[in-house]
Write a protein that binds this DNA or RNA. Structure first.
Lengths: 123, 123
DNA sequence: ATTTGACTTAGAGTAAACTCTAAGCTGTAT
DNA sequence: ATACAGCTTAGAGTTTACTCTAAGTCAAAT
């Protein structure tokens, strides 16, 4: 069992942000007798996955949608699968885009390094 | 020579956004006698590169910094090179992160496809 | 007993990147 | 000549994702 600040530390975010995610319907941890949030290992695993989705540009609204589908039970399995496959496509397209940009940057950097000794008009 | 809407169409953004980029110091096209913006091929090439930087998560503030360094002339070559190398590192780290997430999604999707026929508790 | 630190809530404030509005000008097409 | 499309400006409004504030509760430490 973890407190909000334990989780914040583990994820590298603030407790404020975790409360915001809860308000946005992304997680619903239980409360202890004095009303404080208590997170278990399954909450932590879910939030780690959420962080992955966020870092790969999935908007909060879509993460919430996925979380809600999970709470609705077994009959939403296909809908969740569709969301995951859509996001996988988005991830693959981001990788292609980044790889192409990496090449452009590599070439530009080489041209710049050249122009430091020679004289070229690189931008 | 291109009008603002030509460029907007070519880049898949709106004329509003192009004016915003100008206000933010990212580009300074010339004006025709009636005060309208006129873009040339070098403007277009620069904006295409800007779009690449944006799509790979470089903030407007950093793109502006790069643009300003270019306008300051030859003595900023090293500074521009540093910016490009920093961004290249960021791009490479994004690729690593996306690749790892792609694997996670691939596995999760496989588990979901399994659970549609069998009975597993995937999230 | 009181201070300290971490927690609670509702709600206000911020930053980034657009996105749009209003009022007006200009060049071509009927 | 007048309509119309597309341009201009300054500035206001929107969306997303936080980020913080204020006022208060609570448990452990001095």
């Amino acid at each position: 069992m973890y407190t909000i600040s334990d989780i914040a530390k583990l994820l590298g975010i603030t407790a404020h942000t975790l409360r915001y995610y809860e308000k946005e319907g992304i997680i619903a941890p239980i409360r202890n007798p004095s009303g404080e949030r208590v997170y278990d290992d399954s909450n932590l695993a879910w939030l780690r996955f959420v962080m992955r989705l966020k870092q790969t540009q999935m908007p909060i609204s879509q993460i919430r949608e996925y979380a809600h589908l999970y709470l609705e039970g077994e009959h939403t399995t296909q809908a969740r699968l569709n969301l995951l496959e859509d996001h996988r496509n988005s991830v693959q397209s981001q990788i292609r885009n980044l790889t192409a940009t990496e090449k452009v940057l590599k070439d530009k950097i080489a041209a710049y390094k050249n122009s430091i000794t020679k004289e070229t008009g690189v931008r």
